[in-house]
Design a protein around this nucleic acid. Structure first.
Lengths: 129, 129
DNA sequence: TCTTGACCTAGAGACGACTCTAGTTCCTAG
DNA sequence: CTAGGAACTAGAGTCGTCTCTAGGTCAAGA
């Protein structure tokens, strides 16, 4: 099954621009073929790979690092340890990020609680209790 | 107790540049006094406020929204509901962000597991098992 | 006196990740 | 044959958040 850039944009949520940008940045595991008129032809595999890249990006992996990972995959067997290293390092960063976010969340929740109490106390005073 | 910009930088982790930037952006609850020679003089309150702003930033609240919140606080009593709204909205965004991160984390963890298995299987074959 | 170091301002520059523009090609439908 | 729509390229522009530069003030110590 082959897909146009527009279809891929649709099913990944990336823009057409972003897809071309990603390709230029070298973060497509196997290079995209071209159909008649030089148009890009994607496969389901490309879409799957992109979905993973999106996950990596969403969790803050910078484009150059995704490119490094992609290059390893393109090279084929033999460098699994290096790939593992990249993933583990990123995993650790995500872990820290989540811990940080949780800390922020705690503070925000605390503040929300305080303001809610306050607002409620004002409200009940207003209706005469 | 009054602090210089350098001291505040030290205890907040922000750069001196960033502190001036934040001030210019209007995200300091009470404006910073100036000492002899026009130097900024901060109080512990300022540091506390900055620490909260840092939390908000870290969790992705954009500077303009922190400014809006700051302005409400500067205006004083009476707008607690609006403040609460901002905080709750942000809380929701953080919640979503964490869910997303968790999703990414799950994928990464899955991949790490796969690669670890693979690498281990290679390793044990190498030592003749 | 001279130097050092912290501070000041206004404004320019950097960086990452897109996003958009301009000008073109190609296919399909009316 | 023409209009519309999707695709193409190279490269410029945008956005947010700082970060740095240039040129200056000021106080304290050698």
């Amino acid at each position: 099954m082959s897909l146009s850039i527009g279809q891929v944009a649709e099913r990944t949520g990336l823009s057409v621009h972003a897809l071309r940008f990603y390709e230029k940045e070298g973060i497509l595991a196997n290079q995209v073929h071209r159909g008649p008129g030089g148009r890009r032809v994607y496969t389901q595999q490309d879409v799957d790979w992109l979905r993973m890249c999106i996950m990596l990006r969403m969790s803050g992996m910078p484009v150059p690092e995704i490119r490094r990972y992609t290059e390893l995959v393109r090279q084929g067997d033999g460098n699994e340890l290096q790939r593992l290293d990249i993933l583990k390092e990123h995993q650790e960063r995500v872990r820290q990020q989540m811990a940080q976010l949780q800390e922020c969340m705690d503070l925000i929740t605390y503040k929300v609680g305080k303001y809610e109490d306050y607002v409620n106390s004002i409200a009940s005073r207003a209706i005469g209790q």
